[in-house]
């Protein structure tokens, strides 16, 4: 340790400011770095960071700038600066689309958070007890995760939900003309919030498909986490007379904190980014989400890049809101 500290002292100025570093010295050994090591390390971070910034962050800034134009996506000469007009229109003319999609994104989040994620955790928790046939169960629940979305769309739109031919109506005996249930087309509210906004029945049908995919995903992540929990902990708690729920609540769940965070982040990302499944199910009425509005405008034939970018910025803002909450939790304790 003494060697380490002495080198640290001489190297302070080069790598890290003394103040923020003081606490960490001795714990981390960067200070032994030679000049060439430092160059290696710089290169190791610089190349990936450059790529990430150039292809992800710079375009994100570009989208922000384009949201103040009426650009059609083709000729720069047609670009006009329109100030906040696009945003103004989002909150007036396109108000209903905007709020409807914000609500829908929220519904996805709520559903995944309270249904999909806990269900995946529960399955993982049960499978972790070395049940017979665990591998088979795992494979069944995981398969939807690796299916291409084209097929997820086909399965749900036709095989399951088709009013006249789908399995669901066949099983329910609702295949006669007039009594068929229109799973994907009925925008009536299941849970109304106001007269104009709420959780519509067909959106719930879409959410069912999302949960179908999401559960397997959470299951593998959680199963992986559980494998790393010390089995002695559980034994000890069981001997103390704690019941199953208490063991989970007081021992397993807290021990799984890092995994829980990852799963929460993934749940949030999934619900904010949700796009493909709605797109492949042909985006029925009342099922817009922000990413659909962005895509329709930006990539649509009309090339409404300005308005689409404004929707994109709204999406970015929502994402950043969550990112900040998350980052504060994840990194806050390190400082």
């Amino acid at each position: 340790m003494s060697l380490d500290e002495s080198v640290t002292a001489t190297d302070h100025d080069v790598t890290t400011p003394v103040t923020s570093h003081e606490r960490e010295e001795g714990r981390r050994s960067h200070s032994l770095l030679t000049g060439s090591d430092r160059r290696t390390l710089t290169l190791m971070t610089a190349v990936p960071s450059f790529l990430h910034i150039a292809l992800v962050w710079i375009p994100a800034i570009g989208t922000f700038i384009l949201s103040f134009t009426n650009w059609n996506g083709v000729r720069w000469s047609s670009l006009k600066w329109v100030g906040f007009r696009n945003y103004e229109q989002l909150f007036t003319v396109f108000e209903k689309d905007l709020y409807e999609s914000l609500f829908n994104n929220l519904w996805v989040m709520v559903a995944l958070f309270f249904l999909g994620t806990p269900l995946g955790m529960l399955i993982a928790y049960i499978l972790d007890r070395n049940l017979k046939g665990s591998a088979i169960y795992q494979s069944i629940f995981y398969t939807p995760v690796v299916l291409s979305l084209a097929v997820v769309g086909f399965i749900w739109r036709s095989v399951i939900y088709s009013p006249g031919q789908g399995i669901l109506n066949s099983v329910l005996g609702r295949t006669e003309p007039g009594n068929q249930i229109d799973w994907l087309g009925n925008p009536d509210f299941l849970i109304p919030i106001t007269s104009e906004y709420g959780l519509s029945k067909n959106f719930m049908a879409l959410i069912a498909a999302m949960i179908w995919v999401h559960v397997g995903y959470v299951m593998v992540l959680y199963l992986a986490g559980l494998k790393s929990v010390d089995p002695n902990l559980r034994e000890a708690a069981a001997i103390d007379g704690a019941n199953e729920w208490q063991v989970f609540r007081q021992v397993i769940f807290p021990a799984m904190k890092p995994v829980n965070i990852v799963i929460m982040v993934i749940t949030v990302i999934t619900s904010l980014r949700v796009f493909d499944i709605i797109d492949v199910l042909n985006n029925p009425i009342g099922t817009d989400v922000l990413s659909i509005l962005v895509t329709d405008n930006i990539l649509g034939e009309s090339g409404n890049v300005g308005r689409g970018s404004a929707y994109g910025v709204m999406l970015l803002l929502v994402c950043f809101g969550f990112a900040i909450i998350y980052l504060r939790n994840a990194f806050g304790e390190e400082d």
């Binding site: 790598t15 890290t16 400011p17 570093h21 960490e24 010295e25 714990r27 981390r28 050994s29 960067h30 770095l33 390390l41 971070t45 960071s49 990430h52 910034i53 292809l55 992800v56 962050w57 710079i58 375009p59 994100a60 800034i61 570009g62 989208t63 384009l66 996506g73 949030v268 990302i269 904010l272 980014r273 796009f275 922000l290 990413s291 962005v294 895509t295 930006i298 990539l299 890049v305 689409g308 970018s309 994109g312 910025v313 999406l315 970015l316 994402c319 950043f320 969550f322 990112a323 998350y326 980052l327 994840a330 990194f331 390190e334 400082d335």
Partner: peptide
């Protein structure tokens, strides 16, 4: 994760937050 470095947390934040961006929102400039 293995070194303490000036931009440590900033860098990790950059990547983590980048992970949250929706692809649709960056496609046109890209």
């Amino acid at each position: 994760s293995r070194f303490s470095w000036r931009f440590n947390i900033a860098l990790l934040m950059l990547f983590t937050a980048g992970n949250l961006l929706p692809p649709q929102a960056i496609i046109q400039p890209l």
